[in-house]
Design a protein around this nucleic acid. Sequence first.
DNA 1: CGCATATTCAACCGATTGGTTTAGTACCCT
DNA 2: AGGGTACTAAACCAATCGGTTGAATATGCG
Lengths: 120, 120
Amino acid sequence: MADDRLSLVFSALADPTRRDIVARLAAGDATVNELAAPYDVTVQAVSKHIKALEEAGLVSRSRDAQRRPCHLEAEVFDLMTKWIERYRREAEDRFRRLDVLLEQMGGQPATGAPTTEAAS
Amino acid sequence: MADDRLSLVFSALADPTRRDIVARLAAGDATVNELAAPYDVTVQAVSKHIKALEEAGLVSRSRDAQRRPCHLEAEVFDLMTKWIERYRREAEDRFRRLDVLLEQMGGQPATGAPTTEAAS
DNA sequence: CGCATATTCAACCGATTGGTTTAGTACCCT
DNA sequence: AGGGTACTAAACCAATCGGTTGAATATGCG
């Protein structure tokens, strides 16, 4: 797998267990054991998932005795949203131009054309 | 790999070549051959990439003689942004509450606190 | 110290991935 | 019909993934 930041983030979130971990961390920091509890896989497997999230920059960890509390680094989400929004906007602009063109040609407007507050 | 929609979309975008294909499709529809041209992999490999994007719902295809023009379905991006924004918001709200709490306790405000127009 | 708890490391396993080559299908043109 | 172009399917391969078990490390507690 490519090791650039965006690839790491996307592939970290491609796994439902890891997305669930992120969702739970959004509600508050938690230790590996706490995070592992709800799943029916071993704590080692969860430890690996957390490591993947950490390498993607989505999670950071501190130390509290033998515990390693995990903390969600939500800023990394920006990297994704920026990428997504950029191309979504391009695609929608293009669609809108096409729509205008079709109207000028006297045809029906294209169906499902995104509006200015597209896909809120 | 999990086959729920969100997993398919995230893992489709975890590959830099596929992200590049999406970026190029945002500028306009293109055929498999056109898309494959810039990369130094075989057209079959690109065909597979496009299939992955298609299965994630990011790309649709029509038919034009022997050509199969690819079209970006930007609406699917919403699925991701919704997921991302939800947990980012939760995490930031939590961070802000902590920040307020620290101030009430007379300490320094936490550093790097997200503002209301967080990480623009 | 000795033991329990929390976490990681290492080795292994089957499934999946991204790539290849080779072959097949679909369509146009003469 | 025959041949070229665009694309997909199939079989294969090395690398990675998500999981396991078992052992190691780090810390707190009596």
